[in-house]
Design a protein around this nucleic acid. Structure first.
Lengths: 352, 352
DNA sequence: ATGAAAGCGCTAACAC
DNA sequence: GTGTTAGCGCTTTCAT
């Protein structure tokens, strides 16, 4: 490899500590501590000298050391564990959470588990080892009981997008079952009978709920449920596209699709366009996306409110950390909104 | 507010420390330390007892305290400061960075500055106070000289997407000037003369570079440069859409658009569709997006490679932290790829 | 109004 | 092999 010490690579100067500041200002370290924490009992004269020393030495407090001894032990950092920080839905929540956190002087340790139950555990351990004051989790593991010990010891946890199980953790999410039911009913009302459901892996709470919602609507309408029209495990647009392709080639293909999330919608639309069926097969996506109105036909969706979910989750987390809200509680549902754009208003007869 | 102590809100048990483990295992604390760090000189017998005590007490090491005394002082955490964690381009980089970091046992403290120069400073202070081993920054402030002191004291910094100024910090980014030039040349080659450039705020490095690239291509082709066709400051799809609308209503409107980024492209396409001009006005976007192929007409783009940028930046950061690479160095360009999909291949005569 | 000493949970240095 | 002591940079306690 390239050797060390090119321009700008001088030996790092020793760390500046509160002790250096105290020495330069000619005071004791406790006085420095008082100044930086705004505690009383420091004469304005000494305070000024201390502040000068701080700027002169360019000293910045070490938050780790500070919290090690502090009474409340707060780290002013929260953990955030999502499916993936690059998923648009998750990223939107992330941003809302960050805004609330930043307003309170909190930083966010963000990571992804890729909907792999095992990685929820390892990623969580990495977060907890850094002693965060709270965690916002999009759960994927079959149970979150493993968190109970830490919760008993004072850890605060809130779940988002999905309900936890095995531990009394509050959650903020859409009512996924209702959302899927609304999407399905919308198609039924347009006269569709053969409606396919494309959804994600069944170990994801939302995928299970959406399946129930779909079944609710079909049963309520007295429609026959054809299990071959229900396809799960579609974790990428590619899988979703392939599944759509297969569905379109069966004996009696569906006339409408309900797509369980963003990525599934994109994969399905791509396939419909390739087969030139996009104006014949109705489609309702769950979860909105930026360009849904620009596609031909524009995509009808049941929109979720990711930033509202994120904001509420962060509010709840901090209220729990503050002790103004209990550390357990019932799930909170955030409304979803049906947005009719065209793809969901195609009738069943279009291709006949 | 709701009072405290509902179900599941028992008084937090005292923190478990290495001392509790030592006491239960009947050994000294140093022996526990040896076991958890895999150091030699511990009999297998005692090691087993210690491990039992650890699981029995559900003890987990406090990474803060650990790093406070450790020789290298590493926190095994890096900071990431982006325009916004919810921007698709940034989120993609974020994910790639997280992957590299997680592989090395590092966690990522992520935050957003919303392209506000002042917030780069405050967000950076929040990160540095938590004593990260390195920072990956998408710069927006006019100068990054403020980081020099921390760099001299051992902080490692890498910039992404944009070049820094005022400090010798390596950067990984696309060649924004070339990308814009490629986009513009592509349109010129199709016969366009009046080509508009829609871009972002000029205090963003990429926006400036893209302007240069556009001018390069126009000049090289000997085309007249009409300043009224160059619109900056378009930080949202709404602003971009409004600017596009205005451009389409001027005396001698452009026949083609170059869009400086994702959001600008979306806003412009939305306006073109509203004016029913999407098949008459050519458009090339810089930066690809998931649904670019699903829009009518499909959007031609000069695609960037955000995850490659992220991966390279993280690799570089860790090499610098390891000391195998100098802490300063020249910028690294990541290639861009022209993807012809339709919108960029429309000729200038379509609407005449 | 100020500072010395103890301690947060852990690792480093040096005993035994 | 094992334990004791000191110390990381800060806050707390308590004396002055």
């Amino acid at each position: 490899m390239t050797p060390l010490s090119p321009p700008g690579n001088e030996p790092p100067e020793a760390r500046v500590t509160i002790r250096d500041v105290a020495r330069l200002a000619g005071v004791g370290i406790k006085t420095v501590s008082r100044v930086i924490n705004g505690e009383p009992n420091v004469s304005e004269h000494t305070a000024v000298r201390v502040r000068q020393a701080i700027t002169q030495l360019r000293w910045e407090p070490d938050i780790r050391a500070r919290n090690l001894r502090r009474a409340d032990g707060r780290t002013h950092t929260i953990g955030l564990l999502l499916g993936s920080v690059s998923n648009p839905f998750a990223a939107e929540m992330h941003r809302a959470i960050e805004d609330v956190a930043a307003n309170r002087g909190y930083a966010v340790l963000a990571s992804s588990h890729d909907d792999d139950p095992a990685r929820e555990g390892t990623a969580m351990a990495a977060i907890l080892g850094r002693r965060v004051d709270g965690v916002i989790l999009m759960p994927i593991a079959a149970s979150q009981a493993y968190l109970q010990t830490d919760i008993d010891r004072g850890l605060t946890v809130v779940c988002v997008d999905r309900e936890p199980s095995g531990a009394l953790i509050p959650s903020i999410r859409s009512d996924a079952r209702v959302a899927a039911s609304v999407a399905t009913r919308h198609l039924i009302r347009r006269g569709h009978h053969r409606i396919a459901l494309l959804h994600d892996d069944e170990n994801i709470w939302t995928a299970r709920e959406r399946r129930y919602g779909y079944l609710d609507a079909m049963r309520f309408a007295g429609l026959e449920i054809d299990e071959s029209l229900i396809v799960g495990g579609l974790s990428t647009p590619e899988l979703s596209g392939a599944a759509s392709d297969r569905l379109m080639r069966i004996q009696d293909p569906p006339t409408a699709l309900v797509c369980g999330n963003n990525l599934i919608t994109i994969g399905a639309v791509r396939t419909l366009q390739r087969l030139s069926l996009q104006h014949d097969i109705a489609l309702v996506g769950i979860d909105d996306f930026d360009t849904a109105d620009l596609i031909a036909p524009p995509i009808t969706v049941v929109a979720q409110r990711p930033s509202q979910i994120g904001r509420l989750a962060a509010d709840q987390l901090f209220a729990m950390i503050d002790g103004t809200l209990p550390r357990s509680g019932p799930p909170i549902s955030v409304p979803t909104d049906l947005i009719e754009r065209g793809s969901g208003e195609i009738g069943p007869g279009s291709s006949d």
